[in-house]
Design a protein around this nucleic acid. Structure first.
Length: 559
RNA sequence: UGGGGCGUAGCCAAGCGGUAAGGCAUCGGGUUUUGAUCCCGUGUACCGCAGGUUCGAAUCCUGCCGCCCCAGCCA
């Protein structure tokens, strides 16, 4: 951390606790429920929880909050572990589950009953809701609230023994049905679920609720700072109530921070799942998904994600961060590190009429323009080439400095060419350009002082390899799709465009886990699921910044 | 209409009583065989509003306004 950086409020608290001697070591936890894939919002929590302990030589637990066997699955725990590791964090031997503590949590529940602080409720769920009152009217006590300790204990043990059906009874904390804080209106502690659990099998048929299980798990693990999102602020009095009543050896402190929302995306597991179920995206790992797995497949580097959440900061204010912020982090992290290649996404044929029919020259392309030490690669050059359709305009505006009839342009790492003739089909579409090249302008020879304003990329037609390239755009058309009543109404139907591209030959053997920049286009990476050696499939990670596109857009708006 | 949280430039965000850091975006300019990168420069932010305390307030007090969260036997 440099001098100019300041600590967020949570890190301030943590450092105060270390300096005051309140704690010798910081212990945190990342507690996902294994009922879906991790997304960009979780990246924030992961980086915070693991970040503060790498910074202070503390410890962080990866703890699965598996208290609801009805909706949790092994597929998700594997995905979560992979995602956290990929992001760059290590829990070492601290992989735990709330279910590891079921016996202790159960004992804590009996202790509450003994103290007269919990009772077995026999009202139905609907009745409980009626007794609970509303936001503005107090609730009223259940007729079962004053059962004796003995009766409660007996009933609870029989709940555990499996004598009752799902929903017949529930264990509740006895706090205050008139509390303005709904969480304190005798919250449920245990419910009956005759469902087998992925870790504990059929050992239990009663499962603890989140508030109880989470607080006790924090205490058992010796968590010093239990960091969670703002919607749990109202749960804190309950969290502290458990700690006060049960007096565990370690007393964790809950601190809340605001969630991170990304513009034009959703971060709700339920809605993300709907996208999959409705066939809008292919899976949790679809490169358009804001899931960690999706972003990994798309080609976002983990360091970029870490930098992104660092820039977003940790506060208590609602955030809706611009896509540009994330994209910029990705470009920054890829720009210096990744090699350049050439690829033509929407090919237009160019024939160099003054270039010998069967000649092939090997041009040398710099692997990185800002770093000559990274060497060069051979780029075969011949009479027929592919260039980008967008790099040619028949009626070009004055500021367009690519190719146009009668105009010239530099072919990157090769020659300057001039456009002599435009060939069209019967429909009037441009299908080929007849150009001539200037032999004195070969790249790197310095034999010509000739300068042109534009440089475009190209690929030799005879040497190009074919590939599928997938171009991604945002999934939604509105800045905050979370607000839409029905997400289907705000879907971007053009979030995926697939093109058949022409690639320079060196790309045929690119490692599947290597990202490259296609010059002038953006960063690309082989798709980890669909790419094969014989049929290459690339994903566009992110485009390059494009001030020409910006000018064009402004011109359009001015019209 | 109950309780809780939050309001500093387009988006984030420092600031913790002494007279508004920084990042991203924007807009200029320079370098450039990627309209990329890189390098310079660029913001009168009525610090949500209104009062008050103070020599002095974004920072303290009071009132108001706006946004978000809470009525699962979900987490």
């Amino acid at each position: 951390m440099s001098d100019t950086e300041t600590r967020d409020f949570i890190r301030q608290i943590i450092h105060e606790d270390l300096e005051s001697g309140k704690h010798d070591e910081i212990v945190t936890r990342f507690p996902p429920e294994p009922n879906g894939y991790l997304h960009i919002g979780h990246v924030m929590s992961i980086c915070l929880n693991f970040g503060v302990t790498v910074e202070t030589s503390g410890r962080t637990f990866l703890r699965f909050d598996d208290t609801n066997p009805a909706r949790e699955d092994e597929e998700f725990v594997n995905a979560i572990e992979r995602d956290v590791r990929w992001l760059g964090f290590d829990w070492q031997d601290r992989l735990t589950h709330a279910s590891d503590y079921f016996a202790q949590i159960y004992a804590a529940a009996e202790s509450l009953i003994e103290q007269g602080l919990a009772y077995v409720e026999s009202l139905s769920a609907e009745e409980m809701r009626e007794y609970r009152g509303t936001l503005t009217t107090p609730g009223k006590n259940s007729p079962y609230r004053d059962r004796s300790v003995e009766e409660n204990m007996d009933l609870f043990r029989r709940m555990r023994a499996g004598e009752f059906a799902d929903g017949e009874h529930v264990l509740r904390a006895k706090i205050d049905m008139e509390s303005p804080n709904m969480n304190l209106r005798d919250p449920a502690l245990y419910r009956i679920r005759h469902v087998s659990h992925q870790n504990t099998g059929d050992t239990w048929c009663i499962y603890p609720m989140y508030d109880f299980a989470h607080t006790m798990s924090d205490a058992f693990e010796g968590i010093t700072h239990s960091l969670c999102t703002l919607e749990f602020r109202d749960h804190r009095p309950l969290y502290n109530w458990f700690l006060e009543q049960l007096q565990p050896e370690h007393l964790p402190r809950q601190i809340e921070f605001s969630r991170l929302n990304l513009a034009f995306t959703i971060t709700s597991k339920r809605k993300l799942k709907a996208l999959i179920d409705d066939g809008v995206v292919s899976s949790w790992t679809d490169p358009r998904m804001p899931t960690i797995a999706g972003m990994r497949r798309r080609g976002y580097p983990p360091a970029a994600l870490r930098e992104f959440v660092k820039r977003a900061g940790v506060t208590r204010k609602d955030k809706l961060i611009e896509m540009g912020m994330l994209e910029n982090c990705i470009r920054e992290s890829l720009g210096d590190s990744v090699e350049r290649r050439m690829a033509v996404l929407r090919p237009l044929k160019v024939v160099l009429t003054n270039y010998p029919e069967d000649q092939v020259e090997q041009m040398q392309g710099m692997n990185h323009p800002n770093n000559p030490d990274r060497g060069t690669r051979s780029l075969p050059f011949s009479r027929e080439l592919w260039i980008e359709r967008d790099d040619f305009m028949e009626d070009a505006p004055r500021k367009f400095f690519r190719l146009q009839p009668g105009g010239d342009v530099r072919l990157r790492s090769a020659y300057i060419i001039s456009c002599d003739e435009v060939i069209k089909n019967d429909a009037g579409e441009v299908i080929e350009l007849r150009c001539s090249y200037d032999p004195d302008t070969r790249s790197g020879t310095g034999s010509s002082e000739r300068k042109v304003k534009g440089t475009i990329h190209w690929v030799s037609a005879a040497h190009a390899i074919d590939a599928e390239v997938r171009l991604y755009d945002r999934l939604f058309t509105v800045v905050n799709p979370n607000l839409a009543d029905d997400y289907r109404e705000v879907l971007n139907n053009a979030s995926l465009e697939t093109v058949q591209a022409k690639l320079e030959p060196a790309l045929a053997t690119l490692d599947q886990d290597t990202t490259v920049q296609f010059e002038r286009l953006g960063y690309f990476r082989p798709d980890s699921e669909d790419d094969t050696a014989n049929a290459r499939v690339f994903n566009r990670v992110v485009t390059l910044r494009d001030s020409w596109a910006k000018l064009e857009k402004q011109a359009m708006q001015g019209m």
